[in-house]
Nucleic acid binder design. Structure first.
Lengths: 202, 202
DNA sequence: ACTACATCAAGAAATAGGGTTGATCCAGAT
DNA sequence: ATCTGGATCAACCCTATTTCTTGATGTAGT
């Protein structure tokens, strides 16, 4: 994909996404078009850095972001990946307006459509339909998160890996295994050995 | 140079730079130390993106930045490189507070000391010495720019390349030729051929 | 003592970035 | 009309970086 393509990104994927949840009229579409701004993040670029307030609600049009925490020992723990048509932000920091303890950065060159806190509030004021849309959207994310938590507390690394393969089969071929390891919560070496074991089985 | 080293950068190069223009007293040095913030940009990371207001005046401590415009056809035209002890910003956007049409990004991992618009204004108010320093600094940049323009309108690509070699001999071994080509305004292939020709001559 | 992991070091393999070359084309100057 | 100063496209090569694997060794909990 060349730079032109990535810069020409329009708002369509987002409108389509909303339309699938709740159909929008043309006025509402115009508001969305005006208030969401496209932005390109390059691979490794920070979208949100620990210590600052998360001020943007991000919709990924193309590419892939990760939300993660760096612990005291310097290890990275990935909370969430977001690729095409998914959302990503630190929702706590965003709504409580306090400094985030999390980081977001780009694993690939990534085009997002982002809306600022103030503009999102103004969107809610324009029509309650957006309250509903964003409620549903957050509910969906919540469900995924809950499943992931359940996986994590109840499964061995191997089981978590197999589950990841099912749930994120599209990302599996796309992300470096170091990132998948940081998502599963194992060392890259151990993931490599799990894969080796799986390959022998098949 | 590893990440730790680059993060330990202190304010000295900037104070030295100012001192050479106009000696600063210790109070003034303290202001500078307080108002300029170090920041690391990783290779390929944006420092300024088209469409946003340039809000930082950047002094490069280590690394190299480029200021460039992407035209309608998607071609990149490099206006300026800035390596150690040079400044870079979109000065029009910075002072008029309007959206920039230009981009700045890092060609190497780059440590800058940057001062925000508001803080620069407050620095000017603290002492007129800073007005003078920044006047001189801009004048110097202006002269370079004028020379470059003159080169551009009056010379063939080969002449521009030779002139680049003289003026930026330190950057010549450091930057990819694609970047030099974008600076000279020729295709990378053509630059490659120019170099081939030069090599045969010598 | 066995399982389920971590850590460190060394290499191998894969990919991306950068450079060169040939072929072909085109616009303006002569 | 053709020569010069370029552009564009495709193919290929080289090298550096990133990613993956493997072996050796260690450790906490059952």
């Amino acid at each position: 994909m060349n730079k032109e393509d990535i810069l020409q990104t329009n708002i369509d994927p987002l409108l389509t996404y909303f339309d699938k949840l709740i159909p929008l009229n043309s006025e509402e579409k115009k508001w969305v078009t005006d208030l969401f701004k496209p932005r390109l993040y390059r691979k490794r670029q920070y979208v949100l850095q620990e210590g600052v307030v998360c001020n943007q609600f991000n919709f990924v049009v193309r590419g892939c972001l990760r939300l993660y925490k760096i612990d005291d020992k310097g290890n990275t723990h990935i909370i969430q990946f977001s690729a095409e048509n998914l959302w990503l932000m630190d929702i706590g920091s965003f709504h409580q307006r306090n400094a985030s303890a999390l980081n977001i950065d780009a694993l690939e060159d990534t085009m997002v459509l982002q809306i600022s806190y103030d503009n999102l509030i103004s969107l809610y004021l324009k029509s309650p339909k957006f309250d509903r849309i964003f409620r549903v959207l957050i509910e969906n994310s919540f469900v995924s998160l809950q499943q992931r938590l359940l996986q994590n507390i109840s499964s061995t690394a191997e089981e978590r890996y197999l589950s990841f393969l099912q749930t994120y089969s599209h990302l599996h071929n796309r992300l470096p295994q170091t990132q998948i390891a940081a998502f599963l919560g194992v060392s890259p070496e151990f993931l490599s050995r799990l894969r080796h074991k799986q390959a022998k089985k098949a």
